[in-house]
Simulated scan of single mutants.
Amino acid sequence: MRQTRSYDAEYKVQAVKLAKLRGTKAAAAELGIPEGTLSGWVHKAKSGYMDLGLGEQRPETALTLAAENEELRRQLKERDKEIKRLNELNEFLEEASAFFAASRRKSGRGND
């Protein structure tokens, strides 16, 4: 049975920094972790999915994060518009429901 180890975020960040200095294979051996695990963390850091702290962003990563931020803003704006539209529709349906309920009561059909 394989034992699964868990690593906290700070450990991962320090491991990636060590891998940058000494190479992934050497750093993995020194830390006693699988090379594939460390390679995954290094890849995440390069892709911008792991924050290594101040001074660790490259221009390509910063642009990626800025583009991702812009996309998230656009999605938020779309969702806000959709929420507004659904609230307006809900308000209309409530008014229509009240109108038809009052209409039924006036015509005497509300007691069926």
Score class of each variant (00 low, 15 high):
Ala67Cys: 01
Leu72Asn: 09
Gln75Phe: 03
Ser47Leu: 14
Arg79Asn: 02
Lys81Met: 10
Ala19Thr: 06
Asn90Arg: 13
Ile33Asp: 01
Lys77His: 12
Ala28Met: 08
Asp51Arg: 14
Gln57Asp: 14
Leu89Ala: 13
Asn69Ser: 12
Arg104Asp: 11
Glu82Asn: 04
Glu78Cys: 04
Val42Leu: 07
Glu68Phe: 00
Thr61Arg: 09
Ala66Gln: 09
Gly55Cys: 09
Val16Pro: 02
Lys77Pro: 01
Ser97Pro: 00
Ala67Asn: 05
Glu56Gln: 15
Asn90Ser: 15
Ala45Glu: 02
Lys81Pro: 01
Lys46Cys: 03
Ser47Glu: 14
Ser39Leu: 10
Arg104Tyr: 04
Asn90Met: 11
Tyr7Leu: 03
Val16Ile: 07
Pro59Leu: 08
Thr61Pro: 00
Glu91Ala: 15
Glu88Pro: 00
Glu35Thr: 13
Asp51Val: 10
Asn90Pro: 00
Leu54Asp: 13
Ala45Lys: 08
Leu38Phe: 05
Tyr7Met: 03
Asp80Leu: 14
Ser97Arg: 15
Phe100Lys: 09
Gly53Ala: 12
Leu76Cys: 06
Thr4Leu: 12
Asp8Ile: 04
Pro34Arg: 09
Ala28Val: 10
Ala45Asp: 05
Pro34Leu: 02
Ile33Tyr: 01
Trp41Leu: 08
Val16Cys: 06
Gln75Trp: 01
Gln14Asn: 11
Met50Pro: 01
Ala19Leu: 07
Lys46Ala: 14
Val13Cys: 07
Gly23Glu: 08
Phe92His: 14
Phe100Arg: 13
Trp41Ala: 08
Ile83Gln: 12
Ala9Gly: 01
Ala27Thr: 04
Ala28Phe: 07
Lys46Trp: 07
Arg105Tyr: 05
Lys20Ile: 00
Ala102Tyr: 04
Asn69Pro: 00
Phe100Tyr: 15
Ala15Gln: 02
Thr64Arg: 12
Glu91Leu: 12
Ala102Asn: 13
